[in-house]
């Protein structure tokens, strides 16, 4: 077997029988957040994770990010177990986690300035990289503004630019569009795919895990949708989304889009009803 084919055989990320149990600090009560998670994600793949609240979507993301360790099972990246947080896996948090005392540019450059991604880069190179991503997410003219002066959609772009500026291999996004109004969401979904590299060949795309509770959003964005269920959190089904790329507004009118959406909803429905009591 050649080196190249060996690398191809190793998925970017692999979950093997992953379970995570939380122990409440005071009561000592144990909660099984997720169990029996097995999943392989190829390099350049866009995977959406959907499920009702309490299905452990965010737990999955924290485990890949290395912010939490699984209670049992293993998660590997390029064949190596994940040992802790690292800039090779960039995280975009639900409420963006921007630094309110820094400007747009300073936020985007935060990892380059203070973390591992900036190592070996000169000041000029860092600045150029920040400028590049400012332009990519269309924030030119807003570089010196502070987060509180921006709309939700603009904050989301800053967070996305910061994520990308650190040059991670894997993008982890936890409901990044969750706080936006419906119209802005639709626009940013298309933009997200553009920035992810939808039009680029697959080898140049980033690997992405996108957590959402919005079924249509998941179907619109993903190569595969991972449907999770509750009690305890686990994978119910993995659906390939064979809609053509690049996806545009018209994609939503595709009958296959409606069929896939319906299929995901049917998988989630029972758990979702249970979740709201």
């Amino acid at each position: 077997m050649s080196a190249a084919s060996a690398r191809e055989a190793t998925p970017k990320l692999r979950f093997t029988a992953v379970a995570k149990e939380f122990v409440a600090p005071r009561t000592g009560k144990r909660t099984l957040a997720v169990t029996d998670v097995g999943l392989s994600i190829e390099a350049g793949e866009f995977v959406c994770v959907v499920g009702p609240s309490g299905c452990g979507k965010s737990t999955i993301m924290n485990l890949v990010a290395g912010l939490d360790a699984p209670t049992s099972g293993t998660i590997t990246m390029d064949g190596r177990p994940i040992a802790g947080p690292g800039a090779d896996r960039g995280v975009m948090f639900q409420d963006y986690a921007l630094y309110p005392w820094l400007t747009v540019s300073q936020n985007i450059g935060f990892g380059l300035e203070n973390g591992t991604p900036g190592r070996g880069l000169s000041r000029a190179e860092r600045d150029a990289r920040v400028r590049h991503f400012v332009e990519l997410v269309r924030l030119k003219g807003a570089e010196d503004k502070f987060p509180h002066q921006l709309s939700g959609g603009m904050c989301q772009r800053v967070a996305l630019a910061r994520l990308l500026a650190n040059g991670p291999d894997v993008l982890l996004m936890d409901e990044p569009l969750g706080a936006l109004d419906a119209q802005t969401r639709l626009i940013l979904q298309v933009e997200l795919l553009r920035i992810w590299g939808e039009t680029a060949p697959r080898a140049e795309r980033k690997t992405a895990i996108f957590i959402t509770h919005d079924i249509e959003e998941a179907v619109f964005l993903a190569d595969r949708v991972v449907v999770m269920g509750t009690g305890p959190g686990r994978i119910r089904a993995i659906l390939p989304i064979d809609l053509p790329r690049p996806r545009e507004e018209g994609t939503r009118a595709d009958p296959r889009f409606a069929a896939l959406t319906k299929q995901v909803w049917e998988l989630i429905r029972d758990d979702a009803y249970q979740a709201i009591g």
Binding site: G86, D95, A97, Y99, N114, G115, N166
Partner: peptide, 24 residues
């Protein structure tokens, strides 16, 4: 989350302290 975000960007602990916790 501000601290977690710094960790995911590979910011060392002392730097997290001076550049995230203190200004926050």
């Amino acid at each position: 989350k501000l601290v977690l975000a710094a960790r995911t960007m590979g910011v060392p602990p002392l730097r997290t302290f001076t550049h995230v916790i203190l200004p926050a």
